[in-house]
Design a protein around this nucleic acid. Structure first.
Length: 740
DNA sequence: CGGTAGAATATTTTT
DNA sequence: TATTCTACCG
């Protein structure tokens, strides 16, 4: 068979062992995708029905790519009924069918992280808890970790040490919030990301028939990126594979970078201890990178204690050394990259470059640099579906599908404004909470209950209910018809246009794009109902699509986490500074530092030919300049494969010649409100005179200090606060006053 | 109730 | 800096 011939010996062995449990430890660039796809093709060729194969991947993009590759390997066999996708999307599909067996409505809606956080925030408000002590986002991530470790509110409330711990942290009510959150989700027929897994497990545990059904379907189970699975996922898999015992997991412990999401590296480290009969294969030959790149990566990762034994090697050339570049500021780091790309444009396309960073906010300075030299780039940042105007429309759609979805209801009950204000909503919520009725039931019988709401407002509430009810009754029409009718009915475009800002134009464009996406979805899918589309909009990150079609010639910018599985000829990794990479939050634990190290390992091993590491002296962060030490990781890379240099060139912007006139004209992100532009120069004159060395100032964060130096024609000042706390401050943006 | 100006706050990483 | 929150006025 053709697809077997192109494999290396070891790859072929992995493919041909179809039965039993096996674990494939696969280094970066070792062709694991090829192994998985060949293996599935092989199974199908041997006569296995694709419907009996479950292939779980880390992103939906990789699932899609996998399917298309299998199609290429065995074009004559139809594979439309192969189960391929992320844990979340496959289990969402199962739950859509079976949710009623565990007390959910099959029309449940899925909460994204933002929804979950607002819900928690509301709980905190409702119960008059201090939002400084109970921060919604940290509460949420704690809840998420608990769920992924199979600790439900009840068992949490029985864990004495944990409760004690909360009390010590001054958060005695955490257990209560957790309980309320889970209760609310259930009442509202909402599931968050973790619930998709958790409820699947509950389903399999509580309903023997369903368990038997899926055990019989999934004769062969394959899991990619196994190092990033968590306890909950493993638990589900253990149940599903019990009948046929054909489980193949593929992963690389050195690339485990999702522990913040509950990923448990022990799943891969200890696999053989709970599957004692499993076979281990190691894919150690790298087909991607040069020797220098691999040596650098290997020497770095050897500093980690927790890892499996393996030796990644390549037949490729030595290649160029890893370059480490020091620049004076984050701005010149951007200039450095832009200039580098420009200088090498005879050899490389823009699309040969990948710029990687630890956190999304770091993209800015690079964008600036690239713009100055007119280099095309794309930032893989926030999802389209996270924009406010898009979320509004989606909230309508969710509420139409699931009337109990309070999260969506609160979002849009007065958007566009229809005269149902804060006080009214407050009254409704208060009553509903105290009388154990759902918001939806309550507002549908608002006439009958005395809530001290005036009749005009009651009328408006009624209209709102009628609107939603009308669409709910017609929700089986095609998603496109439904959405376009809805947007007309609520005059959403008018509402956006009324804002009269530069933003409103792009918002309108975005909504049009959404309608367009829905149209496309309807054309492609047999089931063109809105529910299906909504699932997709939460579970599929459309950024993934963009990475795939790289015909256009642009530089890619993304976080390292997003770069998993990709490869580029040239890779820039920026911000190699203590407190940035490794990140500040990781500093205090050895385990976290090891994960940061793996993150850099992943980053380096994306490269085929060149790696550029950079760090800078001072960086503009928050609203002042900070200086960080160079990252400890730089010293851990074998010196024989690196070369160091310093870059200090300032690039004069062609576009930005006069300082103020163009400040907003080439903004990449959403433009500012027109009105605000008027106020631009207000603060400028206030302080420009009177700044002298030795003068005292009072900064609104750092307190009193003395000016020790003036820089850049008085644009920056160096100030000493306290004994030896020295900061450089931007005069124009910092908040401080001169004192006599 | 709605709109807005000014204040407060925020930067891990994502299915 | 950019975004979100709050308080106040019409």
């Amino acid at each position: 068979m053709k697809y077997l011939d192109s494999l290396s010996d070891i790859q072929r062995k992995c493919v041909e062992q179809t039965e039993g449990s096996i674990i494939i430890i696969s280094g970066p660039g070792s062709g694991k995708t090829r192994v998985i796809t060949s293996k599935i093709a092989h199974l199908i060729n041997l006569g296995v029905n694709p419907n009996n194969i479950l292939a779980l991947t880390f992103t939906n993009k990789s699932a899609k790519e996998m399917v298309s590759r299998i199609n290429n390997l065995i074009p004559e066999k139809p594979i439309w009924n192969l189960w391929a996708g992320t844990f979340h999307s496959v289990f969402a599909k199962i739950l859509r069918k079976e949710a009623n067996k565990i007390g959910f409505n099959n029309q449940f809606t899925i909460l994204d992280n933002e929804d979950s956080k607002t819900m928690i925030k509301r709980i905190i408000q409702d119960h008059r808890l201090d939002k400084e002590i109970y921060k919604p986002s940290s509460i949420f991530s704690k809840i998420s970790l608990l769920k992924n470790n199979l600790i439900d509110p009840k068992s949490y409330s029985e864990k004495y040490e944990m409760l004690k711990n909360d009390e010590n942290k001054n958060q005695p009510k955490f257990s209560f919030i957790y309980k309320e959150y889970v209760k609310k989700c259930k009442q509202n027929d909402n599931m968050d990301f973790d619930d998709l897994l958790l409820n699947t497990l509950n389903l399999l545990r509580n309903d023997g028939k369903t368990l038997e059904k899926y055990q019989s379907i999934f004769k062969y189970i394959l899991i990619d990126e196994f190092q990033d699975t968590n306890i909950l996922q493993l638990e589900i898999i253990k149940m599903l594979e019990k009948k046929h015992n054909n489980l193949c997991v593929v992963g690389d412990d050195s690339q485990s970078i999702y522990s913040f999401r509950g990923a448990n590296i022990n799943n891969i480290l200890n696999f053989t201890s709970f599957y004692t009969k499993s076979n281990i294969f190691k894919l150690e030959e790298n087909f991607r990178s040069t020797k220098n790149i691999l040596n650098a990566a290997n020497s770095l990762i050897s500093n980690n204690n927790q890892k499996l034994d393996k030796n990644i090697w390549t037949k490729k050339d030595q290649g160029e050394k890893i370059k480490i570049t020091k620049t004076d500021s984050d701005k010149s780091e951007g200039n450095f990259i832009a200039k580098f790309i420009k200088d090498n444009s005879a050899i490389y396309n823009h699309s040969d470059y990948l710029v990687l960073y630890r956190m999304n906010s770091q993209s800015r300075s690079i964008e600036e640099g690239l713009r100055k030299l007119n280099i095309n780039y794309k930032v893989f940042g926030l999802s389209f579906y996270n924009r406010r105007e898009i979320k509004d429309i989606l909230a309508y759609l969710k509420l139409i599908v699931n009337n109990q979805d309070e999260e969506s209801l609160f979002r849009i009950i007065n958007t566009p404004p229809r005269g149902i204000g804060k006080t009214t909503i407050e009254k409704i919520r208060y009553f509903a909470n105290n009388n154990n009725v759902s918001i939806w039931e309550l507002i549908n019988s608002i006439e009958e209950i005395d809530l001290n709401i005036n009749s005009g407002t009651k009328k408006r509430i009624n209209n709102f209910c009628e609107l939603i009810n009308y669409f709910s009754e017609n929700s089986s029409t095609s998603a496109f018809d439904l959405t376009s009718n809805l947007i007309n009915k609520i005059d959403y475009f008018d509402y956006l246009a009324k804002e009269e800002t530069v933003e409103s134009i792009s918002k309108i464009e975005n909504v049009k794009e959404l309608i367009n996406a829905i149209k496309l979805f309807c054309d492609e899918n047999k089931n063109d109902k809105i529910g299906e589309f909504l699932d997709q909009s939460v579970l599929v990150n459309e950024n993934e699509q963009k990475k795939m079609d790289q015909e256009e010639n642009f530089v890619s910018l993304m976080t390292i986490h997003q770069s998993k599985g990709l490869e580029f000829k040239n890779v820039f990794i920026i911000g190699l500074e203590e407190n940035i990479f490794p990140s500040q939050q990781a500093m205090f634990s050895k385990k976290d530092i090891e994960e940061e190290r793996r993150l850099l390992y992943v980053a380096i091993t994306r490269a085929k030919e060149q790696v550029n590491l950079s760090y800078c002296n001072t960086r503009f962060r928050f609203n002042n300049f900070v200086s960080n030490e160079p990252s400890r990781f730089l010293n851990e890379i074998d010196e024989s494969c690196i070369s160091k240099s310093v870059f200090n060139l300032k690039i004069q912007s062609k576009i930005n010649q006069s300082k103020n006139s163009n400040r907003y004209s080439f903004k990449f992100k959403t433009p500012k409100k027109l009105i605000k532009i008027k106020n631009l120069n207000k603060t400028e004159n206030k302080l420009s005179h009177g700044l002298k060395i030795g003068k005292k100032i009072k900064h609104n964060i750092f307190g009193q200090g003395i000016i020790t130096d003036l820089l850049d024609s008085n644009e920056k000042i160096v100030v000493r606060f306290g004994r030896d706390n020295i900061k450089t401050i931007l005069v124009r943006y910092a908040k401080f006053d001169l004192i006599d």
